[in-house]
Amino acid sequence: MTDGYSEKVMEHFANPRNVGEIKDADGIGKVGNPVCGDLMWIYIKVKDNRLEDVKFKTFGCGAAIATSSMITEMAKGKTLEEALEITRKDVAEALDGLPPVKMHCSNLAADGLHAAIKDYHERSGKK
């Protein structure tokens, strides 16, 4: 529980950034599974190939919420190519580390962002 969570994780958990959905999102990434205790939806708004806005909704533990919050901050303003390069390791490091058993939560946040970008590409391809 709290032992093992860095101050930064607790700070993001207590005051998560960018919570909510984007009504007219350009892409949505849905990852995780409530059976495992983690479900993460990442919404993105894209303008000129850049992430103009990123928001999340998450069901999960402290690490799941903190990594969701962190990835929205990391991704905002980046180009789509730059955003695709954000890895689970980057998310965990930005939070000053995660307890080993929680590493899959950080995996989920990066996956969620990448899934949202993929969704954006699929949608724009159809247009």
Binding site: M1, T2, Y5, M10, F13, A14, C36, G37, D38, G60, C61, G62, A63, A64, I65
Partner: peptide
């Protein structure tokens, strides 16, 4: 776990059957 962490910030100790904890 996220309920417990929030309760802890309010000074209350509890436990959960959640896998995440």
């Amino acid at each position: 776990e996220s309920m417990i962490l929030n309760l802890d910030m309010k000074g209350v100790a509890a436990s959960t059957g959640s896998a995440c904890s």
